[in-house]
Design a protein around this nucleic acid. Structure first.
Lengths: 192, 192
DNA sequence: AACTAAGATGAACCTGCGTTCACCATCTAT
DNA sequence: ATAGATGGTGAACGCAGGTTCATCTTAGTT
């Protein structure tokens, strides 16, 4: 991986500061934050951004990759928990909830990526997500909880434009509305 | 309404051409089409756009309002069909499908509106949509098809970021996944 | 047909923002 | 400690896109 000379100490430190600042700024102020503002938030000069990332596109892509890595981590942890006897459907629901809550802000990042025509979905992290999610789905189907014809694509279809509203109860409500379509059980009968 | 002097004949004609061109251009080339391109598509000069709409924001708002008017028309037609004995749930499903298919492109317009911080949801059309949708929901609940605790908000929550993918089967699949959460019946048992 | 006010034109202007580059600072290896 | 390369700086540049305005055209009127 590190085929090129290792980074100088402070350079590595700055790289991290930039990525963090970029994620935060984009999440907060939308995809249109200026490079200047990101630089300011990171405590560096604009030029430094461009030393690490040739163009804004590349910076955003890196942020997205970073974020998806986090998602992948969460999913793989969930898969690990299966071995400990956890039920797949529960893990799926928990993942969806977590994804919606944390990503409610970070979603702006993905939007930013699209807006720039950057390759959404950097390859490596996407691969990990795909694998882990597939495991959860298949396990859930074996356990009889997840509807047999549900596929990975369905999740992407649903998650794609899910949480524009960051309202409090929105996440929970969304889960209640969407889960029945994924599972074998019908709607939990909350009839008053 | 027309408290001001009526528009000159060609002015009215141009206004319509501009709105049409704007809708089409934004839907096709995304929210970032230049005013120049819209003007060109409409067969007018840039200045003309600004005679009709003080700023780009206003133009986009007008397009959105136009579009929502169309949605409202469709919904009110559906409500009318109820009197003819049509089942509310069927009308709801049909509406959702139609909305997703036609709006798949026009969704870009709404996105554009948001991007500009324009008041999404112009008041008048939104009011019509709200009323009609509520009628459909309540009727569906009376008929026992729609889950009792479903509200208007649920629809907005689901539709908000629904159809980013304009893939062929996406719409149908999305309906299959989402309808169970809205109805009393569970998932149609397509088990292989 | 002539008049006038409403409308249309489009080159020019202005602002914001991504990007560059000539110069300075700092790290690391000898 | 010193060399020299790697990293950092930020004012300046260029472009893209929204907006303006002095000027010309045209619809409606007398």
């Amino acid at each position: 991986m590190a085929s090129t000379r290792p980074l100088r100490a402070d350079a590595a430190r700055n790289r991290k500061k930039i990525l963090d600042a970029a994620r935060e700024q984009i999440a907060t102020h939308g995809p249109d934050v200026g490079m200047d503002e990101i630089a300011a938030a990171a405590g560096v000069a604009v030029g430094t951004l461009y030393r690490h990332f040739p163009a804004k596109t590349d910076l955003v892509e890196a942020v997205v990759a970073d974020w998806m890595d986090g998602v992948a981590d969460g999913l793989e942890a969930a898969v690990a928990r299966l071995a400990a006897g956890s039920r797949a459907l529960d893990e799926i629901a928990a993942f969806l909830r977590h994804f919606l809550e944390t990503a409610a802000n970070d979603m702006a990042v993905k939007a930013a990526a699209r807006a720039l025509g950057a390759d959404t979905d950097p390859d490596a992290p996407l691969q990990r997500v795909t694998t882990a999610l597939n495991t959860l789905i298949h396990t859930g189907q074996t356990e009889g909880d997840v509807h047999p014809d549900v596929t990975l694509t369905d999740f992407y279809l649903l998650l794609d434009g899910a949480p524009a509203s960051r309202a409090a109860g929105a996440t929970d409500r969304w889960l209640i509305l969407v889960l029945p379509g994924l599972t074998t059980r019908g709607r939990p009968d909350t009839t008053a």
